[in-house]
Write a protein that binds this DNA or RNA. Structure first.
Length: 290
DNA sequence: AAAATGTCCAACCGCCTATGA
DNA sequence: GTCATAGGCGGTTGGACATTT
């Protein structure tokens, strides 16, 4: 007998979240922090299951989330990491690894998301399924194995391992060419760096693509390069905003929070910020108006 | 203008692991 | 060691929106 669903209680609401529910959840989390998710709905006055609250918060409401489509650099990074995560073993083991990774360690998306600050695993997974998969197929690349689809036309490839395809010494070129087939995220055969939509993206991509230790760390429980936690919100040094951490800048976050004023920003529990944080917010608001 | 089709993504689902009793 | 539970994960779905016919 299977496990009982966690939300089979009568009266538990499903479906899209309303602005009012969002407001309640944000207010509760900002005031009390993330605690026992099971208790959150009751304490926050929501008719949702805890799991639904956690998902809503994690995938949509967290202030440190970037909004909008993935940049080309981010997309390229996702492809690169996906290829490497699926190709960290000798070829003979690939099938086994693909299967076991699905069964035993289904953490690709979360691992990848951990390297993309402000992005969620759900977002990356969706983007992969809707955009990247199609791009790779269009270019004749198997999105699962990252190998050319029509191998019979390229018999010499059968002897090359995935590791060969991804030489350690030329990681910058990893996604530019795959046995002659360009698998860049764009139709333009540019390098990942050139694909970057911003210098910050370039730095992010380069630093990760060039760091084999980083890729190894994806297979161990190592903290991400950037701690995505926002629990300890620190007022930023204005000179350091939008730096090369890949984080959304404070200003971007401010924009998000500002957007929340549609609901009434104080209703979001922003009073939990101390005076210094509010001061920084006010400063940015002034700058926005200029 | 209306219907059909395609695309996107938020949310749900079921399974797994970690943890504590 | 066993069991119950919470949290976390990837897969999948369904509805809203966009595009095409």
């Amino acid at each position: 007998m299977g496990r009982q669903p966690c939300c089979d209680k009568l009266g538990v609401k499903k479906g899209p979240w309303t602005a009012e529910e969002d407001k309640k959840l944000i207010n509760f989390i900002l005031t009390n922090g993330q605690c026992c998710w099971r208790a959150v709905p009751k304490l926050a006055g929501l008719r949702r299951c805890g799991k639904s609250c956690r998902l809503r918060w994690t995938n949509y409401l967290r202030p440190d989330l970037k909004r909008g489509l993935l940049t080309e650099a981010e997309e390229q990074l996702v492809i690169d990491l996906h290829a490497r995560l699926g190709n960290r073993f000798p070829k003979d083991m690939i099938c086994l690894i693909v299967i076991t990774s699905q069964v035993l360690s289904n953490q690709w998306w979360s691992k990848i998301a951990a390297r993309l600050p402000g992005r969620t695993d759900n977002e990356i997974k969706n983007h992969w399924n809707t955009h990247i998969k199609k791009k790779l197929l269009k270019r004749g690349i198997d999105p699962v194995t990252h190998e050319p689809l029509h191998k019979e036309a390229r018999p010499e490839e059968s002897s090359s391992s995935h590791a060969d395809i991804l030489p350690e010494s030329s990681n910058n070129n990893v996604m530019q060419e795959n046995d002659g087939i360009v698998i860049n995220s764009d139709d333009n055969p540019r390098s990942p760096t050139e694909n970057s939509s911003s210098p910050e993206d370039s730095i992010l991509l380069d630093s990760i693509c060039n760091d084999e230790m980083l890729l190894n760390s994806l297979w161990v429980d190592e903290p991400p390069l950037v701690d995505a936690s926002w629990n300890n919100i620190i007022p930023p040094d204005p000179a350091n905003t939008n730096d090369d951490t890949g984080y959304p800048s404070w200003e971007e976050n401010y924009t998000w929070l500002s957007d929340c004023q549609d609901f009434g920003v104080h209703d979001f529990g922003l009073e939990c910020f101390d005076s210094m944080e509010l001061s920084a917010l006010s400063t940015l608001e002034m700058e926005h108006k200029h």
